[in-house]
């Protein structure tokens, strides 16, 4: 994967209408975005639609990216995730890929599951958030991760975790505040 500086350069060039830079940006980042879209949408067709829509938006809105708003890859990731959430809210897929119930445990505990990250900064950020997620109560942590990776709403989380809606909302909010506090302490 290209480093942050290179991705920023391509994004800036894309904003100026440089088609080759846009293609290079796509080549360097699409596999990461596609992985997340597959996870959330659980359907290759829908994930591919979302991926297309996301990069169309990148092409149109690249000029709104600014390095002080975060790393290029996480900015791209957000665009893709928002698109996936839009699609998800409209209609749940009728044919879904199989669930992976141990996904959260894997993400938190199995170092081998991590893809090789060539960018140290990303790895440090990931280490920090993994550490901070580990400091949350299990229900707080699970609700945040389920929301992120599966795009679940409060109501869906309530059903999935078999807990009252108010309780789930509280888990999420307390978990996020604790996460914010911990990340600030980690100075990441």
């Amino acid at each position: 994967m290209a480093d942050r500086e290179q991705l920023t350069e391509w994004l800036t060039a894309t904003a100026a209408g440089d088609e080759r830079a846009f293609q290079q940006l796509y080549g360097a980042t699409s596999s990461h975005l596609y992985a997340v879209l597959l996870r959330i949408l659980r359907s290759p067709d829908r994930a591919q639609d979302a991926l297309q829509d996301a990069y169309i938006r990148v092409w149109q809105k690249a000029d709104t990216y600014s390095p002080d708003r975060g790393a290029p890859l996480t900015w791209l990731m957000s665009i893709a995730r928002y698109r996936a959430l839009d699609l998800l809210r409209r209609k749940r897929p009728e044919v879904a890929m199989p669930e992976e119930p141990d996904m959260i445990a894997t993400l938190l505990e199995d170092e081998q599951s991590l893809s090789p990250l060539e960018e140290n900064e990303n790895q440090q950020s990931l280490d920090a958030i993994r550490h901070c997620l580990g400091t949350l109560a299990p229900q707080q942590r699970d609700s945040v991760l389920l929301a992120y990776y599966e795009g679940l709403t409060h109501q869906e989380l309530s059903a999935r975790m078999d807990a009252p809606l108010g309780t789930v909302k509280s888990w999420i909010r307390r978990g996020l505040l604790r996460l914010r506090e911990c990340l600030a302490e980690s100075s990441v």
């Binding site: 596609y34 992985a35 591919q48 169309i56 993400l107 893809s115 990931l126 958030i129």
Partner: peptide, 24 residues
Amino acid sequence: QDRLGVLGLSLEPVEPPDSIWQSI
């Protein structure tokens, strides 16, 4: 966006089909 975005990087990358770029 920046902090939670790195969670997506913990997933194994998956190459999309070539047809996606063609459509874009």
